[in-house]
Write a protein that binds this DNA or RNA. Sequence first.
DNA 1: TATTGTTATACTCTATAACTATA
DNA 2: TATAGTTATAGAGTATAACAATA
Lengths: 151, 151
Amino acid sequence: MIDALRVLDGVMRLADLVQRDMAEPFAGTSLTMSRAALLWVLHSTGPSTQQALATALDVTPRNITGLVDGLEASGHVARAPHPIDRRATLVTLTDLGSEVMQQMVAQREHMADDLVAELTPAEREALSAGLEKLADRYETMLAAREGKGSP
Amino acid sequence: MIDALRVLDGVMRLADLVQRDMAEPFAGTSLTMSRAALLWVLHSTGPSTQQALATALDVTPRNITGLVDGLEASGHVARAPHPIDRRATLVTLTDLGSEVMQQMVAQREHMADDLVAELTPAEREALSAGLEKLADRYETMLAAREGKGSP
DNA sequence: TATTGTTATACTCTATAACTATA
DNA sequence: TATAGTTATAGAGTATAACAATA
């Protein structure tokens, strides 16, 4: 099944490129990939408790404390008291944080256009569908493994 | 260009899955992703100097020192004197290291088969070709950015 | 003089465990 | 009693800079 390995190689190579692509833009900035991921969640879902962030990013609450500390120091987010639960804190994007996120969204769109610039509409359609199928299958496999590995 | 974003989303999602897929199997082991990546280079290219490893993995020589220290302690690799250059050390896979790599290769093949199990040969072909095109394009974009960003 | 690997130092991400304040 | 966040502690990955041995 040489076919299969060729597909997997393509996926791996692409995954590697994506990773390097996402790490680079922040070089020199105070933004790291983990912190940018947190900003992305805030941008997508709005002000969130640290618990919610921990769940969304699949890390421990302690880890969120550190990330929010960093982002607060750099002025990208602010901590506010939760309106009804005095144990919790609401993390919100500051103006700077919102600006940065808008830039990231724009850059992402630009990147997406660039990426498929040389593909015909039919090719894009086929690729989109194929990627989706592959990701669905992959997700199923990972879920099955988790259920088996650590029940 | 909603098309473009759909393709990029598929790529991102897949990249994320790959990352989680690669991180999980080592949980509980002394093998981490970075160390496994080093083993992979050794398996692919044979005994290497630490300089060569640093270049292959795109990290600093200092970083390699740490990774090799860990892998030496866990018995996966061994340091040997370089036959002609007495400054350098040759890092080689031990028997244990080779065994682990053979398991990883087998597991990877199995995974690849699973991943494309529900695709027709034509779909596989289309997907392989599309992924390759996308990765090539991506690589070109990253190279262009590097040339412009930090000359 | 240039290269190979190491020690020294520092920062980020990550985790577990114990603790405080609130529900 | 359970939950939200923090302090304490620890390990891995990563980087820069200075240094020793060798080329």
